[in-house]
């Protein structure tokens, strides 16, 4: 996470040039950032628009309204890689084509989740969708910083287990 968090100066500078796309800001070439400046990410292989599309896809596949964008960003950052470029190029082109077939300009510009989900359903059998979805299962839910949002406490050995820390503290039965 540290790479993405609070890039200070750079972030501030680039946000000045930001263009809002969906819920995200694409800031000049090679950067994508949250409009509220909570985080920013540099992309080197794929375009900021493609990264923004991947992030929206991630949110629509596993939508958790209480989970901030930066966690989804970490989960899809792996696609900013030469080895993934062809997959991303073709996959996003197909996704946008599916959006157009349903009467939208492209996937990212669709306002309602419900409508984006219909577009995703049209491509859910494709390798691109399946790769992104499967990757998220670990890419999103295996981030230790995500766990507390769901209440999950992770390892407890270092604290002596739960024997004195509420393994049987249920009080509402």
């Amino acid at each position: 996470m540290s790479k993405l968090e609070r890039k200070g100066l750079t972030r501030r500078a680039l946000l000045g040039r930001a263009v809002a796309v969906g819920a995200l800001a694409i800031a000049g070439t090679g950067f994508i950032a949250a409009p509220n400046a909570a985080w920013a990410m540099e992309v080197s292989v794929i375009t900021p628009e493609q990264m923004a599309t991947l992030m929206q896809m991630a949110r629509d596949i596993y939508p958790h309204d209480q989970v901030a964008d930066r966690f989804y960003a970490v989960a899809v950052k792996v696609y900013d890689d030469a080895a993934a470029k062809d997959l991303v190029d073709a996959g996003i082109a197909a996704l946008n084509a599916a959006a157009q077939a349903q009467g939208h300009a492209d996937y990212l510009s669709i306002g309602w989740e419900e409508d984006r989900v219909k577009v995703l359903q049209a491509v859910e059998g494709e390798v691109f969708f399946q790769t992104v979805r499967a990757g998220l299962v670990t890419g999103l839910y295996n981030q230790k910083d995500v766990w507390p949002i769901f209440g999950y406490e992770g390892e407890s050995f270092s604290q002596g287990g739960y024997i004195d820390r509420g393994f049987d503290d249920i009080d509402w039965l």
Binding site: I61, Y62, P63, Y141, N142, G154
Partner: peptide, 27 residues
């Protein structure tokens, strides 16, 4: 199961709010 395995085994291949609203209440 912990949250990571819960996500993997809850409904393998599943996605969307039907899936995530279940996980939202993991606690």
């Amino acid at each position: 199961l912990g949250l990571p395995f819960m996500a993997a085994f809850l409904n393998p291949g599943g996605w969307g709010r039907g899936f995530t609203t279940a996980l939202d209440h993991y606690e």
